[in-house]
Computed example of a mutant assay.
Amino acid sequence: MLIFKQNRCIALLVGVILVCFSAISLMQPNQVAEGKIDNLQMDKLQSTSRASVINYLQEESKSSKTRGTTKVSQTNKLYSTVNLFSSTWKPEQSVEWLSKNKIKPQNTSQASIVRVKADVAQSNSAAQKATAKKSAQTVVKTVSASQKNPLTTLYFSRTELLSQEQQSKATRRYAVSEEELLLLQKIVMAEAEGEPYQGKVAVANVVLNRLRSANFPDTIYKVIYQKHQFSPVANGRLKRVKPNDDSIKAVNAALSGVKEVPDSTYFFLSLKLAQDLTVHHSQEYVKTIGNHTFYK
């Protein structure tokens, strides 16, 4: 304090430096709040202020040599004091300033709502998939059960064979006897023994389509034994065959409503073996399965 009293110019200079620092802080409050203080500018300001003080002291030291040793010693003490002050005082560099992004509150409630909605949608989707899978499994089990245990009652409309669920729309009901069931299995075996499974189902479809149609007999027995219709009846093969598993399954599938050909399909023949091609030339083509061609 004695040094500052004796050298008022130095005290004034130090005061100016402190005022400069305060003015800088007041003029740039936004940068200070956001942690954007330019470290390079602060270092430059510090080094500039320190150099100014040192230069002033050096000049004072030179001028004081002519005025006596007492003045020199006082000046040296002041010089060392300012050096100590300038070297020890530094702005805190480890302080982490808070920015707007850091202090901005996060909208956690909206994110939670979005997350909950996503979880609900995912659970609903999973529930729908589980329901669809369960329904498909139920349908498969129903068809499999009907194929193992053939339906004994058929429901017809004027244009198609109906499923059990559509029986309210039926215009005709037909009860299949055990003899007719065996006869239907045997005609499928005799006509399509070497054909693919779909071809066996299609042959059973043709017999049931004729049973429904008013242009053909009204019982399975009469449909199969109608003259000049099925070659195994004429050559006696129908009586000799024994239905295999595929033939039995194909008949049960056709009785349960599985259709490999449309309800309007009434004819089929093998173009390789048939001697009479009247059907081929007179009827409309539907599809070919294996060696059999089907017509309506």
Rank of each mutant, 00 (worst) to 15 (best):
V114T: 13
Q28L: 14
T171S: 15
V82I: 15
N55C: 06
L26M: 14
Q122V: 08
V140D: 15
T152G: 02
V14Q: 07
C20M: 12
I113S: 07
I224S: 02
A253N: 05
F85S: 12
L40V: 11
S94T: 05
R158C: 02
Q164S: 12
S94A: 05
V19S: 07
Y266M: 07
A127I: 15
G194S: 13
I37P: 00
V120M: 07
M42T: 10
K239C: 01
Q46I: 13
S49I: 03
V32K: 08
G15A: 03
I248T: 08
T48A: 13
A204L: 03
Q147D: 01
E191G: 01
A51L: 14
A253R: 09
K227Y: 05
V201P: 02
T131C: 06
S282V: 02
N76R: 15
T142S: 11
G35T: 09
L255P: 05
Q6C: 13
V207E: 04
L238V: 02
K148G: 03
T131D: 13
V139C: 06
L84W: 14
L183G: 09
V206S: 05
T153E: 10
G199R: 00
Y225I: 09
T153N: 10
S99W: 09
A111T: 12
L12P: 00
T171Q: 12
S112G: 05
S64R: 05
D246Q: 14
A253K: 02
F294A: 08
N124A: 15
K186E: 01
S25P: 00
Y266W: 01
I37R: 02
L84G: 13
L12K: 06
R115T: 08
A170Q: 01
A23L: 15
I54W: 06
L98M: 11
S146D: 13
S270K: 00
E193V: 06
S125Y: 11
L98T: 15
K259F: 04
E59D: 14
E34R: 14
